[in-house]
Amino acid sequence: MAQQSAAAEAVPVTTPATGARDKWFRRTLFIPPLGFLVLMTIFPLLYSLGVSLFNYSLGGTAKFAGFSNYVTLFRDPSFWQVTFITIRIALFAVAIEMVLGVLLGFALHQKLPGMGLFLLIIFLPMMLAPLVVGLFWRFLLDQTFGLVDYLIASVGFKPIPWLTHPRYALLSVIIVDVWQWTPFVVLLTLAGLGTVPPDLEEAAELDRASVWMRFKHIYWPHLRFPLLLALTFRLIDTLKLFDTPFILTGGGPGNLTTTLSLLGYRFHFQFFQISTAAAISWVIVIIINIVANILVPQMQKAPRGSEEAVDTGL
């Protein structure tokens, strides 16, 4: 006994000197990621900002243009149309994903036999490459060969021109995004629900709390953070949506499913207006920044009752 406690006391106490060394060591650890960040993020960003301020076109020399690229862009009504379409897709798709994802998450939270396999199936869409998803849905929704219209026709309705009709094309893009990304919300919902202490659920059950009271008081405190995270991720992701409309509808009919990313792509690779494309990508950056600036501070707010004691009550 006595020997053991002597050995325990022999552990060296951190001295101020080693403390300072520690601090420097920790700071040097920052250098590689910082360098990486500068190289891979800051530089391309600044470069594209530079490009958007010049007039690059194929073959010609770059001339400084100030904000004229932006001005032209903002004067173009189709730019505004595309901006609103992008926002509309983002809002609708994410709203549906959130609601559906939370509902499915609660459904899957129950421990039933065979749940493991079911979960795997649910998460499959998220694991597929966007290209695969796009092609797969293009076949499903195709008016002449598609399975969906085949089923619709077989129950006696008129086939729907999913990908070519103005009314349905946008819906198709949203459906595909919902199909692919609802599992992500389910995943985060399940992660949140997994942190709810079971005895709280039981206490609420014995207290006969209504569904709403349970959601608000038992589950929401544990869901708030993961769901805000899901919301932020999904909004950022859908605001720069590119692959689904690119493969599914090509942005058509007309511009009706063209997103900002797709528009930028067209300016760059079809019209070779590289500076306008860069300006568009900067518009996307700004919109996403606004969204992130609203949502991220929400995440940092502590839920009720978890702050340090303020009112001592004495």
Partner: peptide, 25 residues
């Protein structure tokens, strides 16, 4: 009415709200 050995208090509610909870329910 059960008093849990682990207490199972609702952490985001004050003492008063914890007690009001079953009655409000």
């Amino acid at each position: 009415g059960m008093a849990f050995q682990t207490y199972a208090l609702y952490p985001n509610m004050t003492v008063r709200e914890n007690w009001e909870f079953p009655l409000r329910a």
